[in-house]
Design a protein around this nucleic acid. Structure first.
Length: 371
DNA sequence: AATCCGGGGTT
DNA sequence: AACCCAGGATT
């Protein structure tokens, strides 16, 4: 390497020949070791885009369940553009970051109306789509269309931080700038036969399978001989962890009100946390912080809590939630944002994660069967 | 630059 | 339990 003990955050390009060897070795490894992921079997920009949107801060294993279902429900841009908000949210239920689902549909409508239903191939036009940032734009253009667009996700940031001994904090501006610089350098080279599609996916796959966040398998790494972090014995310590903040404890009560085999469900407000999702009536116990302190629409006044059925633990980003699940009776007739539904109908709604956990257990709580 | 937004598999 | 994941929008 031309670089010695780089402790700063400047990416210095390796020698031409080294760069070629790195690219060649990683591509070769990728061809043998890559996972057989369904979205790697298509080059349809729309299908790739859906996969990338789902994969934002979401594990591959989770997306495996959702991607095929979503594509069956909305096979192309036009189908997604004319779908109802509710149908899209329902297909997204459980994936989290529900803003993504809204943005996805908004972007589909932009493509449908302004690009004739054809996914744009211009970088700036892709980047302008709602919910599409630098990573997703580069990912779709490189993976689907094989254009030389760089990408940096959590995997790529980590791989470059170790490979070039970039000593920075995970997700920080300086490290991200250095990683993007390295990504641009490698993907733009045309001195060999490694296509952008292969290079970008190989980088991420290396981060997922070998250059893992903790306990990297350096012995199995195809580019280990060029790795400055490994040579310095600090691969496992890069990138440096982001300073953590203590989680916020939240106590909630959720009410399961049943009437004639139907359960009371309510819809969350259109703005804010888990916007528009359905759940069982829920309030925060010790003063409103994460959730409202009382139920909307005067529902709380007509809802009579009864015995506790169970308690659950749940996490929402920085919040650690303890939920007391109580049986309840309610005289509320239902409304636009409050419905009485049978258990199977409840399970078809766009539920929050917490509500989905409970919905799976509703049958055990039908009256007469006990807890 | 910091903060917010879900949920879950790994370790 | 802590960590962090094929990030983007908002402030």
């Amino acid at each position: 390497m031309a670089q010695t003990a780089a402790s700063d955050l400047t990416f210095e390009a390796p020698d031409e020949e080294v760069a070629r060897e790195i690219r060649s070795a990683l591509a070769e490894w990728f061809h043998h070791e890559q996972r057989d992921l369904p979205w790697r079997r298509t080059r349809d920009p729309y299908a790739v885009w859906i996969s990338e949107a789902m994969l934002q801060q979401t594990r591959v294993e989770v997306v495996l369940d959702y991607w095929p279902r979503f594509l069956r429900a909305f096979p192309d841009v036009h189908a997604l553009a004319r779908a109802t908000d509710e149908a899209v949210l329902e297909a997204w239920s459980g994936l989290g970051y529900y803003r993504r689902a809204r943005a996805l549909q908004a972007a589909a409508r932009v493509i449908d109306e302004e690009h004739g239903g054809v996914f744009p191939t211009d970088h700036d036009e892709v980047l302008a789509l709602p919910g599409v940032g630098p990573y997703t734009a580069g990912a779709v253009l490189s993976i689907a269309l094989d254009l030389p667009e760089p990408i940096v996700d959590g995997n790529v940031e980590r791989v470059f931080a170790r490979l070039f001994h970039l000593d920075g904090v995970r997700g920080s501006g300086p490290l991200m700038r250095a990683a993007w610089s390295a990504a641009r350098y490698f993907v733009a080279r045309e001195d060999d036969r490694v296509p952008p599609r292969v290079w970008n996916q190989a980088l991420m796959e290396l981060g997922a399978l070998v250059c893992t966040p903790r306990g990297p398998r350096c012995g199995a790494c195809p580019v280990g001989e060029w790795c400055a972090g490994r040579a310095a014995g600090v691969a496992d310590d890069l990138p440096r962890p982001k300073p953590k903040r203590p989680p916020v404890e939240v106590r909630l009560e959720t009410y399961l009100a049943e009437r004639d085999g139907r359960w009371l469900v309510v819809q969350r407000p259109e703005e804010g946390l888990m916007a528009g999702m359905w759940e069982f009536p829920t309030v925060e116990v010790d003063g409103p912080g994460l959730f409202p302190g009382e139920l909307p629409g005067g529902l709380g006044a007509r809802l009579e809590p009864a015995e506790e059925l169970t308690t659950m633990r749940h996490g929402i980003t920085k919040h650690r939630i303890t939920v007391s699940v109580r049986r309840a009776t309610c005289a509320d007739p239902g409304s636009k944002s409050a419905r009485w539904l049978e258990a199977p109908e409840v399970r078809e709604l766009a539920l929050t994660g917490m509500a989905r956990k409970l919905a799976e257990r509703l049958d055990a709580w039908e009256s007469g069967l006990g807890a």
